[in-house]
């Protein structure tokens, strides 16, 4: 439930998994995760199990992008889904490496 994370690739890739609602309530956990992350990491944010995302969540993704610097940030989500709608309406696909997957 909420946010979980793991690292791969000798700690250079951080996987962040968000389930259910991605909104302001995840703010503290997400920020701590970013603060703890080493510089020079790439990120994969898995939203395939998330059901909802609001503008605060988009703000958190912007923070993550800033943390990543020039490194890759990948967003994974189901298409079609509520998440996909938010990502496309906000044109965030221009800032992130987006991977839309088909529903199971």
């Amino acid at each position: 439930m909420g946010i979980t994370s793991r690292t791969e690739n000798q700690g250079r890739t951080i996987f962040i998994n968000v389930t259910e609602r991605f909104d302001f309530n995840q703010h503290a956990v997400f920020r701590k995760l970013l603060n703890d992350a080493k510089d020079g990491c790439e990120f994969v944010v898995d939203l395939t199990a998330a059901e909802y995302m609001d503008s605060s969540a988009l703000g958190l993704l912007l923070l993550l992008r800033k943390k990543a610097g020039n490194n890759r940030v990948e967003l994974r989500y189901v298409k079609p889904s509520a998440i996909e709608k938010v990502v496309s309406a906000s044109n965030f696909s221009r800032l992130f490496d987006c991977k839309a997957v088909s529903p199971l």
Binding site: S55, S56, L58, G59, L60, L62, L63, K66, S90
Partner: peptide, 13 residues
Amino acid sequence: KLSYKLPPDRFVA
């Protein structure tokens, strides 16, 4: 104005 005045996680649609 907004991009330098607001913190990075804030924006205005």
